[in-house]
């Protein structure tokens, strides 16, 4: 490939991943997940009574995701509290997780997923999804499958997997493209697709294939973390 990654990684090489389940004793389920220097911690509370009452749905439980960067997770301090960005990302994470959940058995309740980023080096929303999926499984919420997520990038004309901050700020040729995606682990179905940048439609197809392969690697890390949580 033409563009050399500053990290020295190959185009299809992920950063080192770590995953741990059961990191917050108070929560009904919890997990952390990291891509290199990007860390996400997630807690699940519920199913529990939903307030306000008018939001209750008598035919199913609902999922409520809160995602945000912690104030010290980025170079310029992030003002605490929800922003348009964090509200949008919270919602797309909700949509990314819902297709694998079966909440019909918990009418009128809510399952709260809280995901925060203490340290950010790009790809935070996909790290958050990986942590949240693990925390939901740890909480014993009925799930059809796990969800794995990765950010595929394009630097000038070349596709790379698992974008870091240095690559997000790349500004040569066709510039940077960030293409976060989430898929159901054992199916070829995507639950999150977002994109910013400049990429030809034909390359979108190639990026999807690259993302599938990366998600398989992530799934293996997630499975291992869940098994460890059971055996200890």
């Amino acid at each position: 490939m033409a563009v050399k990654r500053a990290s020295g990684r190959k185009a299809d090489e992920m950063r080192e991943m770590t995953a741990k389940v059961g990191v917050i004793p108070n929560a009904d389920g919890s997990a952390s997940f990291s891509f290199g220097n990007t860390i996400a911690i997630a807690a699940v509370y519920g199913p529990r009574q939903l307030h306000p009452q008018h939001m209750q749905n008598p035919s199913t439980g609902i999922l409520r995701v809160t995602y945000d960067l912690l104030s010290f997770s980025v170079s310029d301090r992030k003002k605490p509290g929800p922003s348009r960005r964090s509200q949008e990302i919270s919602k797309v994470i909700e949509w990314a997780l819902l297709p694998v959940l079966d909440l019909k058995e918990f009418p009128n309740t809510v399952i709260d997923v809280q995901v925060y980023i203490p340290q950010a080096d790009a790809s935070t929303r996909v790290a958050a999804i990986n942590a949240a999926a693990l925390a939901l499984a740890h909480a014993g919420i009925p799930m059809r499958d796990l969800v794995s997520a990765v950010s595929v990038g394009k630097l000038d004309k070349d596709l790379v997997v698992d974008v870091d901050k240095n690559e997000e700020d790349f500004h040569e040729g066709e510039g940077p493209t960030d293409f976060p995606m989430a898929k159901i682990a054992n199916r070829n179905e995507f639950t999150l697709l977002q994109l910013d940048g400049k990429i030809q439609p034909e390359l979108v197809k190639k990026a999807i294939v690259m993302g599938q392969k990366a998600c398989n690697e992530i799934y293996a890390v997630q499975q291992k973390a869940l098994k460890e949580a059971i055996s200890t």
């Binding site: 293409f179 070829n188 977002q194 994109l195 990429i199 030809q200 294939v209």
Partner: peptide, 19 residues
């Protein structure tokens, strides 16, 4: 022609073939 932005919404999936 470049794709500049993309966002999937709502609660079900798109398959790779559909994309």
């Amino acid at each position: 022609l470049m794709i500049n932005s993309c966002q999937k919404g709502w609660e079900t999936t798109f398959t790779a073939d559909e994309i």
